[in-house]
Amino acid sequence: MKLLIIEDEPEMLENMSQTLEREHYIVETASDYKTALQKIAVYDYDCILLDITLPDGNGLELLKALKLSGKDDGVIIVSAKDSLDDRLEGLNLGADDYLPKPFHMAELHARVKAVLRRRHFEGNQYIHIGNVSVQPENRRVTVDNHEIVLNRKEYDILMYLITNKTRLVTKSALAEHVWGDHIDQSDSFDFIYSQIKNLRKKLEHATINIEAVYGVGYKLETD
């Protein structure tokens, strides 16, 4: 899988490429409009992470150029502006997703994987992990070919943890992903525990475990 990160903030770029490289993606970077435009024109990427505010141009113009040249690289707009207009315009121009800064690394992985899945398998694909397999298109989960019924939140938690397997997922990252941005101000994220407990019960016979990490978050481990 080949990714392109277009981001003018060097440290931001470094963080993103570091964490994505660990997932064995081929990561290329561009830190300005011109370089980005050249790379987009010459190469094909599976997913482009696109910062809107670049020193020498607007990221949305890059998106336009990309779509004009008939390419269908996946595009996730990454922006500090989190403005509704940008989001709408970006999505209308054919971006796959919009990720406002700041974000959790776990969220970045989830978004990238979702785009890659949609692009390459059009959803018709199983994710296997241990004896668990997930069919993202119809949100079906089976353990040893026995279907288990998960509610929306349990499924979202499981997918998020699978996407970020072996990575520590903090409670706040999980809460924001599953319960939405608006859950934030709650006095603690302990409320997610009951769903985790139910999920664990349903995954009794699975070879994957949801491990709590020192009250900080959770991690998916395979036996």
């Binding site: 931001m12 963080n15 700041p102 974000f103 959790h104 690394m105």
Partner: peptide
């Protein structure tokens, strides 16, 4: 937003 993003991601 950007410095916050950098700090959070670096720590993660």
């Amino acid at each position: 937003q950007t410095p916050l993003a950098i700090i959070i991601n670096k720590l993660e």
